[in-house]
């Protein structure tokens, strides 16, 4: 995987979010904080579960990055306490244990997403934006989602672009549904594999790419601008064009 340039750049007009990172490894926390600052996000840091829980309750954050493995009060307990107090702030769990059951336990405890360590910034950012956004907006409620020239009928599970009906297979529809739900955000390959195929493992090289390029071929008609862009080193982004 070539990695000549940064996948994320500060110029990109991503919404600025206020984050809380609860992570005991000071160096990791520092690098992540600085990286997020480069992207224009403000990050507070707490090194222990107790500090983190206090900060999460007192401050108002758009999303919380929570390490599972913390001294004293561990990540899952922090999460459970938070949820028990009715706090619905989106939480992205980080863990060195990337196993399925750990992931399930994390999501069950009220986590919104789960990211195994070590992670790429791209992956971290994509997931934070995904959960922070999910927190805010919802579909209009009329069962139709309009993204630029693309219209998804969520009930009939059909798609049209510029009035042209697009024939989609089941998984292709799910892929498009996911991409439009996160329109304007970077979505990583791992996120797609997890969301569409429910695989917690990498099923092999370039599988997602093949599926996305098929979807592209279907939704981009002659003369229409491409909707799904490849974000180098990170994943894909569907733009509302």
């Amino acid at each position: 995987m070539a990695y000549a340039s940064a996948p994320w750049s500060p110029e990109r007009n991503a919404p600025v979010v206020k984050l809380l990172m609860i992570e005991d490894d000071a160096q990791t926390a520092d690098y992540v904080r600085r990286g997020l600052a480069e992207l224009g996000h403000a990050t507070d840091h707490a090194a222990t579960g107790v500090d983190g829980l206090t900060a999460a309750i007192v401050g108002r954050y758009d999303a919380i990055i929570l390490d599972r493995n913390l001294p004293g009060l561990d990540g899952l307990s922090v999460l459970k306490s938070l949820r028990a107090q009715g706090d619905r702030t989106p939480v992205l769990l980080l863990s060195a244990l990337g196993q399925v059951d750990d992931r399930i336990a994390g999501l069950r405890a009220g986590g919104d997403d789960y990211l195994p360590k070590p992670f790429a910034f791209g992956e971290l950012m994509a997931r934070i934006e995904a959960i922070a956004r999910r927190h805010g907006d919802a579909d209009t409620g009329d069962g139709v989602r309009r993204t630029g020239s693309l219209t998804l009928d969520l009930l009939a599970r059909t798609a049209t672009r510029n009035g042209r009906r697009i024939e989609l297979l089941n998984k292709e529809y799910q892929l498009l549904d996911y991409l439009t739900r996160h329109a304007g955000q970077v979505v990583t390959r791992t996120m797609l594999i997890e969301a569409i195929w429910d695989y917690s493992f990498d099923p092999g090289t370039n599988i997602v790419d093949v599926h996305v390029s098929r979807l592209r071929a279907k939704i981009d008609g002659a003369g229409e601008p491409p909707m799904i862009r490849t974000v180098r080193g990170a994943g894909y982004r569907l733009d509302a064009v």
Binding site: T28, Y31, G35, E38, K117, P118, F119, A120, F121
Partner: peptide, 10 residues
């Protein structure tokens, strides 16, 4: 490894 990765990304 997370530190190394973060350093490179940063």
């Amino acid at each position: 490894l997370t530190r190394i990765r973060s350093r490179i990304d940063l």
